[in-house]
Amino acid sequence: MSGGVKRDRDGNARAKSARDDAPRGQFHDMFETFRDELDEHYDRRERIIKVSRDVTALSKKIIFSLQRVKNLHAEFPPNIQKEVDSRLAEISTLLNSIAADLTPLNRQRYSYSLRCLEELVEALSFAHYLRHQTLITPAETQAAVPADVQISPFDYMYGVFDLFGELMRFATVTTAQRGELVGNDEGRNILGDIHELGCAYEMLPEIPTKDYRQKITAMRQSVVKVEKLGYGLVVRGSERPKGWVPDMKDDAPDPSSP
């Protein structure tokens, strides 16, 4: 192999380690190929991480909007619906911009960087619950994702895990406003729902990851908080004036409470 001419580096920032006048080693070509391949991978991951961060933020904003909804089984107020729609449109643009990066091989490769999908599932499932008081199915979730990106069963499962927190907040706020747990005409209310969903999760085989343990702990806390709401209504319900909020500081003694 002839030594000699060193090519220009293509403008990447690590100029200090460039040894532009060193002779080319015998493995130079091989490493150049690797560099190009790795750059491709790093760039792709970078794009995905950026999009993921933005989609997470937008999904959280959707959830904040939805927390301002006051009733189950009703159309969302126009202003809230508008906020949700415009954010879903933004999410759609963002996700579609990386759809090409997510070939079947790469979908799993970057699954950690794509955790925004859990957040999105959370938002979609919450919206679905508010409209129908039912749990969104994986198929409905996939249909509601405004882009050509596959939602895996685990994205769905972890996303719905986070729904518990939203249900808890929604239950707390609406109970304070109305003095009763929201529900349907047939007596199924949010406490029963969160119980049922919680039991469904408890029945699943445990997954031995830190992530799973954290989520299930958070889920149990949310369930307990809604149970306390129900209890507060029964015990003090007759005395309580409209607008009085059950004292959530009751949770303080629980050391694992965040």
Binding site: R14, R19, F27, H28, F31, F34, R35, L38, D39
Partner: peptide
């Protein structure tokens, strides 16, 4: 020298 070529 090869490793130096990579943008890590």
């Amino acid at each position: 020298a090869g490793f130096q070529v990579l943008n890590l």
